[in-house]
């Protein structure tokens, strides 16, 4: 993803600091996570959510952390408005959401439409006590809906033609966040 039109916003070291800071903020709010559940939003929020889950367990000794992954495809508002059908991803929530404090994790908060779909989708699993949102990157000033994150990794100002690409060492060998000029929108 290195070309003249892309620049790095966050390096691996900076991301590591952000992950730990997000974990500390979560612990401050949720303590032992007994009544809370982490839910990664498919497809791109899942790697971020798994990383946060791993750090909470390994570095901060949180046990019995409820963790799930939620696909919002069938709840999106752009179905039948796109060229190709939306491909569903796997949903894996094997606990009761009823009365739980649900924490959504997504990599980029952009228009807010994915988060709206996720709020609809999670209600199929019961009525949560409340829903919070953790976004690694907040592309502020691009919101189509009144959605704000509770915890943010980094806020960036970008224009519509720019694209935020979050790379993970699991997939590309390196953790980093890039801003590119590709004229394509993300979630």
């Amino acid at each position: 993803m290195k070309d003249a039109s892309s620049k790095m916003i966050l390096s691996s070291d900076e991301l590591s600091v952000i992950f730990h800071r997000i974990c500390c903020q979560l612990i401050e709010e949720h303590e032992d996570f007994k009544s809370s559940a982490l839910i990664g939003l498919q497809p791109r929020g899942v790697t971020f959510a798994r990383r946060i889950q791993q750090i909470l367990k390994e570095s901060y000794g949180i046990k019995d952390l409820r963790y799930g992954e939620l696909d919002t495809t069938f709840f999106r508002d752009d179905f039948r408005r796109r060229e190709a059908p939306l491909n569903p991803n796997q949903t894996a929530i094997d606990f009761l959401v009823e009365d739980a404090k649900v924490i959504f994790l997504d990599d980029v908060l952009f228009t807010g439409r994915s988060v709206r779909a996720a709020m609809d989708a999670v209600l199929s699993f019961g009525r949560p006590a409340r829903i919070e949102l953790v976004a690694l990157i907040d592309r502020r000033f691009h919101r189509d809906l009144p959605v704000q994150a509770n915890i943010i990794g980094k806020r960036i100002d970008s224009i519509n033609e720019e694209r935020v690409v979050v790379e993970w060492k699991e997939q590309s060998g390196k953790d980093q966040v890039m801003l590119t000029q590709t004229p394509k929108t993300d979630g």
């Binding site: 069938f74 491909n87 796997q90 199929s124 019961g126």
Partner: peptide, 20 residues
């Protein structure tokens, strides 16, 4: 079949309905 896999998951949720 792959799409049906996800719908089978939907059918086993407490609320078995999606707005697509």
């Amino acid at each position: 079949f792959e799409t049906a896999d996800e719908f089978l998951g939907v059918l086993n949720r407490p609320i078995k309905k999606v707005p697509s």
